[in-house]
Design a protein around this nucleic acid. Sequence first.
DNA 1: CGTACCCCTGTGGTCGAACCACATGGGGTA
DNA 2: TACCCCATGTGGTTCGACCACAGGGGTACG
Lengths: 260, 260
Amino acid sequence: MWFDHRGTVFPMRTHERVLAQIETDLAAGRWALGEALPGERVLAEELGVSRPSVREAIRILEAAGVVRTAAGSGPTAGAVVIDRPAAGLRMAMGLHVSSGALRVPDVVETRVLLETWAIRAAADRHRSGEIDGESLAGAQRLVDAMEEPGMSPADFIASDQAFHLEFARIAGNHVVEAFMLGLRGAIGDYVTDGVDRLPDWPTTSARLAAEHAGILDAVAVGDGATAARLAREHIEEFYIETGLAGGTSPMAPAGAPSRG
Amino acid sequence: MWFDHRGTVFPMRTHERVLAQIETDLAAGRWALGEALPGERVLAEELGVSRPSVREAIRILEAAGVVRTAAGSGPTAGAVVIDRPAAGLRMAMGLHVSSGALRVPDVVETRVLLETWAIRAAADRHRSGEIDGESLAGAQRLVDAMEEPGMSPADFIASDQAFHLEFARIAGNHVVEAFMLGLRGAIGDYVTDGVDRLPDWPTTSARLAAEHAGILDAVAVGDGATAARLAREHIEEFYIETGLAGGTSPMAPAGAPSRG
DNA sequence: CGTACCCCTGTGGTCGAACCACATGGGGTA
DNA sequence: TACCCCATGTGGTTCGACCACAGGGGTACG
């Protein structure tokens, strides 16, 4: 039996006990990043529960982006500890967007909020010299790549996402980075569908690439306010153009977790 | 077999197929909020898979805050559709905080970011008359309650959390609301532990309550800038005082999902 | 006829055992 | 010495069984 902070009593289900134990061991550093948990059968034996109960707990860990599972043998097999917070956030948010509990406009608004913060912070850090001068090189390479006319929409979207994430990385906040990744992933299929409906992708992509260059330039000179304003306009314009800004009805499921 | 956007081929596991199908049905409106999914045995039969595979998918939905399960019979039994995005976010974030992939200072920084935005937005909406004049009544009641000297730390923390969430609710962004709830929950045990280590809780709680009153007053007069600044100082001061602001080492697991 | 009680029914929760496909790595073979 | 093959152990999946629990309907009683 377990108790909440008010003294209410309730039984804890088996897979919850397993999950709690694994979480405790995780916090205690029992497994480092890249190491594998004990096998399901071993874990079941250790905790005195059945293998299906262990599996249910591992499923949750996997959905949360804490482990990745693989069959076979060798060091890469088993439930290997990873750190993909965004995968878990993406899963939860995507499901709630599908169910209608979360709306795309709210997701977009939140994305603007986080991105403008990250870009402003990145610009500030860059101006104050806190970060290496080469930190913007990655963003520059992505901008260059996106300015190539022949890039496919899918590759462009991937590069676009990487570009936006660069600033969260520079800002140094992993939670914001994970949120941004999760938000973007949660509405990923909506974005793809929106791009497919655009009347003139080459023109749009060229404009987007130019806007990216403008944002990067503003960050490079340390003008966080301008960079944030440009980013806001860039994001909002994109969602308006693809018809996602006002739509609240679900269009397609966000899909099963990717194996990225 | 399934393909990603690059044409890579990979098999989809059974529980992933089940999850994808449920997500599609969810998006199609097959079940309304409060309705129950078909029984596990029925679902397994429908999809041509085994019951454990269905259960693994439902576990993920449960962890994500999409359904709540209960045994027995009647309308409240089974896998009932709910909308608790924060539960899923809290689960994912809490696990990653435990594993060390996400750090408490980043969580706090993100919380400040989201809360100052929400409070500013709430103040703006209040000033512009977009919202009912009674919207702040709930926050006022919470402030009044927290100013009562006899309140237990646990109840105070609950009221405090509700107070902060009020502004996200007024701002009208469910994603931000869920993020705030998830962030707070992910470090919930750290907060509780921090409070327990405070030398003089009555004094601290009185100060916190006064700060809440100040924030609410600033929002009430539509001064978003002041309200946001007060909120930032309020949050940062609390984490410094409880010794959480700089700590990165895990202290205790965030625990299994609560049944709230 | 109305009401209270009890048990039948179906739910999720848990378990054990079995078989599969797969990745590996060591031992046997050319 | 180099190659190949298969024994081994992993997660993936399934089946079948039993449990505790909550409801609802049938039944017996007032």
